[in-house]
Amino acid sequence: MSPFDLVQPFADFAFMRRALVGTLILSVTAAPIGVFLLLRRLSLTGDAMAHAILPGAAIGYLLAGLNIYAMSIGAVGAGLLIALAASAVTRLTPLREDASLACFYLISLALGVTIVSLKGSQLDLMHLLFGSVLALDDTTIVFIAFVCSVTLVVLAVIWRALVLECIDPAFLRVVGGQGAWVHLTFMVIMVLNLVAGYQALGTLLSVGLMMLPAATARFWTRTLGALTFLAIASAMMAAFAGLLISYYLSLPSGPAIILVAGSFYLISVLFGPVGGIVTSRLPSRHRIA
């Protein structure tokens, strides 16, 4: 295998180029969002939201077919609705947030699959659930790029407040008036990124490009900046390597990307320098202070 083989599929095929561009752009914003989800112990929330967007996308599909705008609007609406419903149940009843999220995402998944089946084929269902990164058209890429640009700007603006809200929410509520807008803004950009991501990876796997790189990075560094940077880098490498593997081994490309990200994670769990299972059990000399 020559180095040329690493670029040749992208040089030869436009669909491979588009898939690469789409997933690289997604990596830039999905990974930092994943880092915050991880640090705020909201990983499950990301997962639940990813499922929650399915019925919305399905309703868009029912009304307008495979139209990216209709499906995206439906998906964003459903995602935000479920986020609000889950937090309302948490606040108004004794049920904990993780339990209410689990309930809502099961309902959403079943509802979404049912709605798609009303009109579509098995193929459409597979497209919604697992995406079709090799079928990204220019409109979709522009949509993904738009969402990611907005996300970058929003993250830059709320960064300081977001960090403070993670560590010391009471302090933010005192000095900043109240912290609710930070959390809400963050939830909105998370849903937007999931909606952008499901075009490529499907509703079930789009959260994979958020959580796996973030969890991977946690085993390599302790500081927030490096964590964010490493998560982005590992998401990008997973996208690149996953597409190549899917090309040469004829595997489905979305799952291939997530599997590569997953193997980065497993390797880091074992050998990562910050708390990896093997690494932290190696004998090591300690300093005197």
Binding site: C166, I167, D168, F171, V174, G176, T223
Partner: peptide, 28 residues
């Protein structure tokens, strides 16, 4: 003003696993 009150919360209310440098925390 309410926003100017300096309030020391109990440590249990802080998420100390967040990887933030001491400088950044104090700077708040």
């Amino acid at each position: 003003a309410r926003r100017r009150i300096a309030y020391l919360p109990q440590q249990a209310d802080l998420e100390r696993s967040f990887p933030l440098p001491v400088f950044d925390f104090v700077a708040m």
